[in-house]
Design a binder for these strands. Structure first.
Length: 905
RNA sequence: GGAUCCGUAGCUCAGAUGGUUAGAGCGCUCGCUUCACACGCGAGAGGUCGAUGGUUCGAGUCCAUUCGGAUCCACCA
């Protein structure tokens, strides 16, 4: 292309790209177009020996300096693409799973950025919660006591004391300060990894779930829920972990199969009838409040409404009917205890039964014998349980039953599901306690329906993941329990008045003003009170519980979006465009975020959600720390390079659990290297950006049919890859571009080499240059989201700015090129045929062909004829005879190949 | 028990609205130091698409049943 068009400025300077870069926060457009286009053309600067090594460091630095990932705050919602990124737990360990899923998000972020969106891509840290709590305790040798006063001058010990009893006991505020200090170091390690991986995160937008802003957002949201009635406190039976001594939410349950045994023993009816029940928890016998059977169960009709007496403890209990009783289980009649499990709670509530709780928060039976045991024998039997753990009490009860010959047969061993806290190792108990809840539809059909509707409002990628959300919402059996009896976390911002007797008034908590946040009720007096009134009758007490970590991380859209702090900013990013996350936390993170946005903003928090799969080890098992099969991500990054690892991650579809596979990284590495080498080749042929075809007049340079055919194929690839990306199918987009690229290097480049060197004159050479420039330009952009390092490296050899702020290619730019996308594949068929002949003859590929016949159906023969010159040159054929023969759809047959002397030329 | 996904060459995976001889990469075999690339290049041999039955002129691609694998939810009587 000899002339240069002032109207059709090529490539990166298309209006989209220019707008894109000109809106950067700092106002310095990375790729601004000077007024005189001729002055802009630069000679490519191609290294002698291109390599991937060192690109990560070099380019990551350049990107940071050029601030190309900076969110432009002066913007409007329609220009923004906002991502609610998962904040990693920095005190946790690095995992290839991080690399995998964060790359998938980054690929999407980069695509949207190139499409001209102002991408809001923050990355925060989840340093709130139990993992950090434990790490800080052990690292410094400190323990938190929320009732201790804050000491502004506190410094932690140099070395943690050997004996835990000698650890410093510090206030919650002091503890939080230590957490903040330590997590900063952990976060640096993650940030380094993510930077090296090439995540296009805007690091100026970061947040931490324990920082003041996050605590403020979390408390503000909580207060608004309280005021609107979406949050409330209640004294109720709750799932309780006896080791951590905290209540836990349904979302944190894990059912594990454990061995147990059915113990069969009888209650006695008035007429002396023995009513046998079977239970895996005989120790709960003294807590029994009723027996229950199904209303239709004929065996027990005569007992409904009567009372029976328990063995050992002589308690008279009613026999009741309830639909949840399963005639198939055990003897079909069950003892209801307060509380053995959540079904007991349902029965207790719906049948309005008394409460006879014996198991305390420490998981032990009450030391005092309860007053409902009113025979001397019952009292004496209870003494053998008093103060015992659940496990020992069970043994004691069974022993007593045996002693008194009350056990019917031997216990029958079974395996059954038992509820555990996901981080705990003892079965959960049900304990009555005062807790805070957020309404989540668990006990309200209308809200449940509304939240299901929110789920349908969201676009799920892949779509089938929605059913997990629906399964979860439909299975909720109570509101979301958000209070935790832990120390480290966001304090629940309430105080309670103490009446004249010193009893707290839970019905009417004292709430702070939002302007006072964040507050710590354990350290600060309630508004309107003096600190000296804490704990005094007529004074106040501060809530000591903290919010569950999900109650804060469910607000990441609000935290990152400066909700309540900068309303204009918030309205520019919320509702977000995308929530990427793992499918294993749909019931926790995804659902809870929907619950909060629904209550706070009457909105979905995002329009789309992308669920990443898990990483499996090469044996197809889930990689997890407990299995000890975790791979540290820095290894593959160093060994294969970031682009290679990203290629592996981007080859997996959303939602697909994927094996950790080195082979795939090697392929990615090969592709990146090939990109460098092919680019070097093209640019050393005199290709510059002025050769890029992007409209009717520049298209005139494409005089050769094969060159136009390549561009026609490229046009189709751009079109298809774009629509794949729009559908979040980056993996398929990558595959399309990749296979086009390989046919480009393996076939097209080989076919046109001679012509490119000028063997057919200037016009034919200019035509190749136009095709090469246009293809290289587009391919670099198409690969840029997945291979940010190699593509930007090449981009900087011959273009200005960064490929990452260039515009995504548009098929429309190539509309003016009249070519057939079928031509190159046909010519490649003939090329392969001739190569095969040489291969079979076991000669060098550059061996000349004296003569050969190409037999093809008419349409293909036409394509071959148009490219016969290139085909002859590439195969060193002196005489190729073209025969038009056969039915449409048939392949190209290469026949009668006469090879020449290998060393003839 | 409810729900979802998956089952295609030795391996890892593609195969949109059903349509001509089922694709890729790796691995394997053979050949080639071809002036972008030996971290390379060329060629080749490997599947009838878990099974059965249906719908259809035609099914890997839709329906039913079934077997196998995985996951989510429920499940402590």
């Amino acid at each position: 292309m000899s002339d240069l068009h002032t109207a059709d400025t090529p490539g990166t300077d298309s209006p989209d790209a220019f707008e894109n870069t000109s809106t950067r926060a700092d106002g310095t457009a990375a790729a601004a177009a000077p007024a005189d286009p001729a002055a802009r053309v630069r000679t490519p600067d191609v290294p002698e020996k291109p390599a991937l090594e060192g690109l990560e460091e070099k380019l990551a630095q350049a990107w940071a300096q050029e601030e190309i990932y900076r969110f432009a705050e002066d913007t409007q919602r329609s220009d923004v693409y906002s991502i609610d990124t998962p904040p990693p737990t920095a005190s946790g360990s690095l995992h290839v799973g991080h690399v995998f899923s964060y790359t998938q998000t980054d690929v999407l972020a980069r695509f949207h950025r190139m499409r001209g969106k102002n991408v809001f891509y923050p990355l925060g840290w989840d340093d709130n919660g139990l993992p950090t709590e434990r790490r800080v305790q052990n690292y410094y040798g400190v323990r938190c006591d929320p009732s201790k006063p804050y000491d502004p001058d506190y410094t932690p010990p140099q070395q943690p004391a050997k004996n835990q009893r000698d650890w410093d006991v510090i206030s919650r505020q002091n503890f939080i300060e230590l957490c903040e200090a330590l997590t900063v170091e952990d976060e640096k390690v993650f940030e380094d990894l993510f930077t090296r991986l090439g995540l296009s995160v805007d690091w100026t937008q970061t947040y931490r779930t324990i920082d003041d802003d996050s605590r403020t957002v979390s408390q503000r949201a909580f207060l608004r829920h309280v005021r609107s009635g979406d949050a409330y406190t209640a004294l109720a039976p709750t799932l309780w972990d006896v080791s951590f001594r905290t209540a836990v939410a349904q979302a944190e349950l894990e059912a594990k199969d454990r061995p147990g045994a059915y113990h069969r023993y009888a209650f006695t009816a008035g007429d002396g009838e023995q009513v046998f029940i079977e239970t895996t928890r005989p120790e709960l016998l003294p807590s029994c409040v009723a027996l229950v059977a199904h209303p239709d169960d004929e065996r027990y009709q005569h007992l409904f409404g009567t009372t029976v007496t328990s063995p050992l403890f002589d308690v008279e209990v009613e026999v009741r009917a309830h639909r949840l009783a399963d005639p198939e289980k055990g003897s079909g009649i069950a003892m209801i205890c307060t509380f053995g499990d959540m079904t007991d709670v349902t029965w207790w509530r719906e049948l309005d039964l008394p409460t006879r709780t014996l198991i305390g928060r420490d998981g032990r039976f009450s030391v005092e014998a309860p007053d409902w045991l009113n025979t001397p024998g019952a009292q004496e039997n209870y003494r053998r349980l008093a103060g015992k753990t659940v496990h020992s009490a069970k043994e004691a009860v069974v022993e007593m039953l045996r002693e008194q010959d009350l056990l019917d047969g031997e216990p029958e061993p079974i395996t059954h599901a038992v509820h555990f806290y996901e981080k705990g190792d003892k079965p959960l108990e049900v304990v009555t306690s005062r807790q805070w809840y957020i309404r989540n539809g668990g006990r309200d059909a209308e809200r449940r329906e509304a939240l299901l509707a929110r789920g349908r409002e969201l676009q799920w990628h892949p779509s089938f993941m929605r059913s997990r959300y629906e399964n979860w919402v439909e299975g909720l059996n109570g509101d979301w329990l958000i209070s935790r009896q832990r120390f480290f976390g966001v304090p629940i911002p309430v105080w309670y008045r103490l009446d004249a007797q010193g009893e707290p008034d839970y019905a009417d908590p004292i709430l702070p003003e939002e302007s006072q946040l964040p507050v710590d009720p354990a350290a600060q007096p309630a508004p309107g009170f003096e600190e000296s009134q804490r704990g005094e009758a007529g004074g106040f007490v501060g809530e000591l519980d903290v919010l569950d970590t999900w109650a804060t991380s469910s607000l990441t859209p609000q935290i990152a979006g400066r909700w309540g702090r900068d309303d204009r900013f918030f309205s520019q990013v919320f509702p977000y465009d995308l929530r990427p996350q793992g499918h294993d936390i749909i019931r926790t993170w995804l659902f809870s975020t929907v619950v909060r946005a629904h209550a706070l903003s009457d909105s979905v928090p995002w329009t789309d959600t992308a669920l990443s799969g898990w990483i499996l080890d090469p044996d197809r098992k889930k990689m997890s720390k407990s299995k000890g099969n975790v791979i540290v991500p820095t290894e593959p990054l160093e060994q294969f390079g970031s682009d290679a690892v990203r290629y592996w991650a981007a080859s997996a579809k959303l939602g697909a659990d994927t094996a950790y596979e080195i082979a795939q990284m090697k392929i990615g590495r090969r592709l990146a290297i090939k990109l460098l080498n092919a680019s070097k080749f093209a640019l050393n042929l005199g290709v510059t950006e002025e050769h890029i075809v992007d409209g009717p007049s520049s298209a005139q340079a494409l005089t050769e049919p094969l060159d136009r055919a390549l561009i026609a194929e490229l046009r189709a690839v751009v079109e298809r890859a774009t629509s794949c990306f729009e559908d979040y199918d980056y993996a398929r987009a990558l595959q399309l571009v990749e296979s086009f690229f390989w046919s480009f290097t393996d076939d097209y480049v080989e076919l046109v080499k001679d012509r490119a060197y000028g063997s057919c004159g200037e016009q034919a050479q200019a035509s190749v240059r136009a095709a090469l420039a246009t293809t290289l330009d587009a391919v670099l952009r198409l690969f840029a989201p997945v291979l940010p390092f190699a593509t930007d490296e090449v981009w900087r050899w011959w273009r200005s700015g960064s490929v990452h702020v260039a515009a995504w290619p548009q098929a429309a730019d190539l509309d003016a090129v009249d070519g057939s996308a079928q031509m190159l594949p046909t010519v490649a068929e003939a090329l392969a045929g001739i190569r095969r002949a040489k291969s079979e003859a076991q000669v060098k590929q550059r061996t000349p062909v004296r003569s050969a016949r190409l037999i093809a159906p008419a349409a293909k023969a036409g394509h071959l004829e148009a490219a016969l010159g290139d085909l002859s040159a590439a195969t060193r054929s002196h005489s190729l005879e073209l025969v038009s023969e056969g039915e449409a759809g048939q392949g190209v047959v290469v026949a009668d190949v006469e090879l020449g002397d290998a060393d003839a030329d």
